[in-house]
């Protein structure tokens, strides 16, 4: 496979454990396994969707890849360089090429800075532009995301949620990155604004040749924007497939359940389709179930699921699934 060749980022066996500290001396007694041994590649120019329910480790994955969190174990190889153990001061060039768009447009902008300063800060830090050039660049960036240059002297609280998210996108674009991690960039927005922002992200991708890691819990929106989608459950990836393939042919029981939860605006279809509802709560990531982590909520679970952790199996055409049911079928 020539997958490795044009992969812009390769994640190998990535783990992120958060210690649970107790007592006066803050001894580490347990670990929350937020991300537990996941691997995937993202190709240049594609949009890689990452879905899963709340608390499954999507956001942690994104933040670990961009090194907001230290990596517990595993490798993140960006454009041939392993950045998983780099010191912060060596990450400067990485920070210039990888950016992030945040979930909450109200929390992700510093309310004491003007929009111009927010967008211009990456330019100051990386010394990319100064004086008049900086000004021009800020105006250009604001124009790119559909704001005007009059907005540069204003403060974030004067803008609506959609506009604030555009400001966040302009800040991410300031350093001219190759790869952007979108951490649920639309989940805090109105539906009408969601479409605007997603369309803008698509346009920017075409114009600037960006690669996205698109994290979301809303499958319909991810389907619209993503080329390939990975489904996460309790810190592990359970299924990866091309987006059409995933929707046509979901294989993992968890993916099936997620897909059946998408509302379809047609009562007839909704009535006919088989609905797979999940029962029970997500197990605690401090002490996940042995074997397959999903077995506690899976109605197909059998003996093997308790003992053995399923490995990723390739079904052909970039479709990989981690489930023991596949062995049974064969």
């Amino acid at each position: 496979m020539n997958k490795d060749k044009d992969a812009i980022i390769k994640v190998r066996n990535l783990k992120k454990y958060f210690p649970v500290k107790k007592g006066f001396l803050k001894r580490k007694v347990q670990y929350v396994k937020a991300v537990d041994d996941i691997s995937f590649d993202i190709k240049k120019g594609e949009t890689f969707g990452l879905v899963g329910e709340s608390g499954c480790g999507k956001t942690t994955t994104g933040r670990t890849i961009i090194r907001l969190y230290d990596v517990t174990d595993g490798d993140v190889i960006f454009d041939g360089t392993n950045i998983s153990n780099m010191k912060e001061k060596d990450l400067s060039s990485f920070r210039k090429r990888v950016q992030m768009i945040f979930q909450d447009p109200f929390a992700s902008l510093n309310s004491r800075m003007t929009v111009g300063d927010i967008v211009g800060e990456p330019l100051d830090i990386h010394k990319l532009a100064s004086g008049k050039e900086r000004q021009e660049r800020i105006y250009y960036l604001l124009k790119t995301v559909g704001l005007s240059k009059e907005h540069a002297s204003r403060y974030p609280h004067e803008f609506s949620g959609g506009q604030r998210q555009r400001i966040g996108i302009a800040r991410a674009l300031a350093v001219d990155p190759d790869f952007i991690i979108c951490d649920e960039p639309i989940s805090a927005l109105d539906v009408s604004i969601q479409a605007q922002v997603v369309n803008m992200l698509e346009d920017l991708q075409k114009e600037l040749g960006l690669t996205y890691l698109f994290i979301a819990h809303d499958l319909s929106m991810v389907r619209h924007i993503s080329d390939r989608i990975a489904v996460m459950y309790l810190g592990k990836i359970v299924e990866v497939a091309k987006s059409e393939e995933l929707y046509k042919n979901p294989t993992h029981p968890y993916t099936k359940a997620l897909l059946s939860a998408i509302p379809i605006p047609d009562p007839d279809v909704t009535h006919k389709r088989e609905s797979v509802t999940l029962e029970g709560e997500v197990p605690s990531p401090i002490n996940p179930p042995k074997g397959c982590t999903f077995r506690t909520r899976c109605k197909y679970a059998f003996e093997t699921c308790k003992n053995k952790e399923p490995s990723m199996k390739n079904l052909g055409g970039d479709h990989t699934v981690a489930c023991h049911l596949l062995d049974n079928k064969k």
């Binding site: 950016q99 945040f102 992700s108 830090i125």
Partner: peptide, 24 residues
Amino acid sequence: EFVMAARTIGATNLRILVRHLLPN
């Protein structure tokens, strides 16, 4: 998140403290 945003654009600890945290 704005502090995380500052870190992703490569701001130093001093800069985050002085320009982002203290003014807030």
